[in-house]
Structures are given as C-alpha cells and as structure tokens.
Nucleic acid binder design. Structure first.
Lengths: 159, 159
DNA sequence: CTGACTGCAAAGGGTTTGCAGTGCT
DNA sequence: AGCACTGCAAACCCTTTGCAGTCAG
C-alpha cells in the first residue's frame, strides 16, 4: 500500500514551504529523506528510512538521516509514534485504562472512563488483524512543564 | 500520588500466583522489583525502577532489573507503554488519525474515523495538564503474524 | 563566496550476555 | 543438593558528536 500521488505531492509542497520559511538549506539528502517518509504508510524507523533512501542516494550516511528526522520534527512536518519516548516504560495496571502523556517531559498518567472503554472501532480496522484492546492516548503539556518556558529547538526530553 | 494499599496487595497476590504457576523462583530481587512497579503510578523506565529498588536493596544490579522486567512481561503481570516499540518511528501523516499496532511485530497502520475524532475526554484529565490531541491506539495481532506460530517466551520483535 | 550541511569515524549511553558464585526449592 | 538466579564486567547496538571537506544560496 502506498500514499496517493496527490497526497504525496501535497506533503512535498509543505516541505518546500517549511524549508524556505525556516531559512534552512534544501539539500538532496533532505529532499529524498522527506520524500521517503512522506510516501510510506508504515511509519519506518531511522534505519529503515536510511536503507530505502540509500537505494536512490547511495552516499547518504546514517547520521544525516538522524539529523534530518529531528529537523523535520522541529519543522512540524512529521511526528513520532508514541509521543517520542526513548526508553521503554512499564505499566503494572492491567485494568482497562487510558493515558495522558506530556509531550514535553513524558509524564504519563492513567485515567478511567467507562464510556471510552466501550468505544466503537471501525469495522475496517479488522482488515489489519485481530483486535485485543484499545486505549486512548491523550497528548498534551503537563502542569509542571506549562509553568516552565519551552526549550528552544531541542529534542524533547523524557526525564 | 500512590497506588492504594488494597490495589497493591491485589497485585502482589497476582505476582505470587504467577510466580509459582510458572515454576520460577521467588527471589528477593523479583519481589522488590515487582513491588516497586506495582505501587507506582508514573510508569517508570528500567533505570528508575533500578534506582528506587536500590534504596531498599542496595546490591541489586541493573541487569537483574532488566531481566526481571522482561520476565514480568512474559508472565503478563505488567505491560509496556506504547506497545513495546524499541526504536523511534516516524509519521508523516499530520491529519487526525488513529493507529492499529501489532503487538507481535510492531506493524503500525493508520485508520480514520470522524466519530472517534470527536471523542469526549473526561473533564478530570485536564487536571493533568492542557490537551493538544488524542488518538486511539488499537492493539492486536496483524494478519501476517497470526499466520505464523508465536515465538516462545521471547521479547517481541519490532522489525 | 561563505556558512550551513554532509560523511566519516570515534565516542557515548542504554541494553544484553557469558560466567562463576549464590541461594531458592 | 541441584539448578535457576544474581552480580559483575565486557560486549553490543543504536544514536550522537567533532571535524574537515563540500555545496546551496
């Protein structure tokens, strides 16, 4: 499965715009890296993007892909799955529950809602596979982080 | 904020039961590591669990905490946040959407639902902080993994 | 032209593994 | 007593960083 031609084009246009507005240079590497992520549906990791881009641009280096991904994130052109957590975190709460996650510091808290537990998942999702559970991930800024000024252009930390 | 005394006790009872049913040894380390995660609300990472357990059990080693966490996961006593992904994965889809995630292989696919986009988040969640967005994470087993037999007692891979 | 960007190689940091000693059942 | 488990240290792998050459604006 591929992203539609039209959608890919729209994403590329957004890229051009963001790049020029941010005043950063438009290099072949950045273009190809963004084109790769913009045209894939599988949410690849850095290594995967690297391998795919290398087919067209054999000289790219892995660290350029890393640098570019964080840059694209800063420009708001892409996002990370799971609120950009780094280390694995664990949960001993085995009941049905949902999460509030702070996108700034990674703080995660449980909340409960019977209404949400009974949520209706579209039939089409079953095309992907069998469903075990579902939970809502609410992303925001926790009170503690809101009190502090936002760090400028840095990878959000997860302390 | 702490987990209630009653709830912690229930979790400890589940631990005893699972440990003996699995026929693995009940060591001080495992007990204290599970007690720690079972009584915390903040979904700590391995390092954090390590530091906290070390206050009571100064000789535990970091690798024992790692080994124990994976064991608890195998026993179904805990789970990981964000479907146990390891490396960071990226998403160029900036529209409102939701995810289906295979807990076996990490395959992730988008799906859309206007009904879900308009979901009602409990007022109480605002006590944690401001809300930017929310999306449903549906966890299951993808068709490809369902066709293969499940690997025995291994950390799920995310290829 | 000139500073931002890339590629390389080396460093850094989190996680895993082999092994000998320890302790649970 | 036997064997699983722990602690230690080294290995491993993913990610970041310093630097000199290169290239977009």
């Amino acid at each position: 499965m591929e992203i539609s031609f039209r959608e890919t084009n729209e994403r590329m246009a957004r890229f051009e715009k963001a790049i020029s507005e941010a005043g950063v240079k438009k290099t072949i590497q950045r273009l190809e890296i963004f084109r790769e992520i913009a045209s894939s549906v599988d949410h690849p990791d850095v290594e995967t993007v690297y391998e795919r881009v290398r087919e067209r641009l054999p000289t790219v280096s892995l660290d350029t892909v890393y640098r570019t991904m964080w840059m694209l994130l800063d420009l708001g052109l892409i996002s990370t799955l799971g609120a950009s957590r780094d280390r694995t975190r664990f949960d001993a709460n085995m009941e049905n529950h949902h999460h509030f996650v702070c996108s700034r510091c990674g703080l995660t808290r449980d909340f409960y809602s019977e209404e949400l537990d009974g949520i209706k998942i579209p039939e089409s999702v079953k095309d992907f596979g069998s469903i075990n559970k579902a939970h809502l991930e609410v992303v925001g800024i926790c009170k503690q982080c809101a009190a502090k000024p936002k760090p400028i252009a840095q990878k959000e930390d997860t302390s």
